[in-house]
């Protein structure tokens, strides 16, 4: 096969298109100019220093980290329940139930945000806070968690659990000692993916955030100020670096899980 066939060249150009915006981030984040344009004027870390001293930003970051941590734990717990139930047995309405829980994947995000806003403010009459964002983020994270964990649970051989119980373990013991270690990589990658989704989400956060904005909402506020552009670039560089680092860890665990289950790697999270 021709190594430089037309298709390969096209695929590489496409990859370049996918990465172009991200590669520009560090270029301008370390550029010593207040406007984002060529030519570059020189290396500088002053935008990062400015980020370091912006208090409002730190508060937003703390909020986002708090929300993302709780969301990922909640969504993964519920995802484990659903995925385990899905592989245990067939019961009436199973397809309907799973379809319903996966619904957020095909609903426009603004609809979910608006609907939850109406419930929180009109029906329940609660104030908006970090917890309303957590509740909403969990809704959109569960489908991803289930998709990842389904893979992990479906690969399980049910005779492992039976063997453990024949050897005297209780069902809980069998779950903790046999099943949990086997699906553990799936749980880690579900936690990480939900964490990233929550950390990145803007639409739902904008509707449901209380007095303290999350990180993306704060960034969105910055986009209105022309002189904040390089700051956004610096912040973006940090966020993208964190995302990629988390992704690599998640991918490592996913592959380990696939290898543990003794399967061929088919690649990809989704």
């Amino acid at each position: 096969m021709n190594k430089w066939s037309g298709l390969r060249v096209y695929a590489l150009i496409y990859l370049a298109f996918l990465y172009a915006p991200i590669l520009l981030l560090p270029l301008f984040a370390f550029n010593d100019a207040a406007i984002i344009a060529f030519p570059l004027t020189g290396f500088s870390t002053r935008w990062f220093e400015q980020l370091w001293t912006t208090q409002a930003l730190h508060q937003a970051l703390r909020n986002s980290l708090f929300i993302a941590t709780i969301t990922s734990i909640l969504a993964t717990l519920l995802g484990v329940c659903a995925a385990r139930a899905g592989t245990l047995a067939n019961f009436p309405g199973k397809r309907g139930f799973l379809g319903f829980v996966m619904l957020p994947l095909v609903l426009p995000e603004i609809v979910i945000a608006v609907a939850l806003l109406v419930v929180v403010r009109q029906v329940l009459d609660l104030d908006l806070s970090n917890w309303t964002v957590i509740a909403a983020h969990t809704v959109i994270c569960i489908p991803f968690s289930i998709a990842i964990l389904n893979g992990a649970f479906q690969n399980l051989d049910s005779s492992f659990e039976e063997a453990a119980m024949d050897l005297g373990e209780t069902r809980w013991g069998a779950f903790r000692l046999v099943i949990l270690p086997l699906v553990f990589p799936g749980i880690i990658s579900s936690l990480l993916i939900c964490f990233i989704i929550s950390l990145d989400d803007f639409v739902i956060a904008q509707f449901l955030t209380g007095a303290n904005p999350t990180m993306p909402v704060y960034i969105y506020g910055l986009t209105r100020f022309v002189d904040a552009l390089p700051l956004i670039m610096a912040l973006g560089t940090i966020l993208v670096t964190i995302s990629i680092a988390l992704l690599i860890v998640a991918e490592y665990f996913r592959r380990r899980g696939v290898a543990r289950a003794g399967l061929k790697d088919t690649g990809g999270f989704l």
């Binding site: 996918l18 915006p21 993306p216 960034i219 969105y220 973006g236 966020l239 990629i244």
Partner: peptide, 14 residues
Amino acid sequence: TIPFWTSYLIRVFL
């Protein structure tokens, strides 16, 4: 998949 997981808001803004 990597670019997809990086901040959506920042990508649009870029």
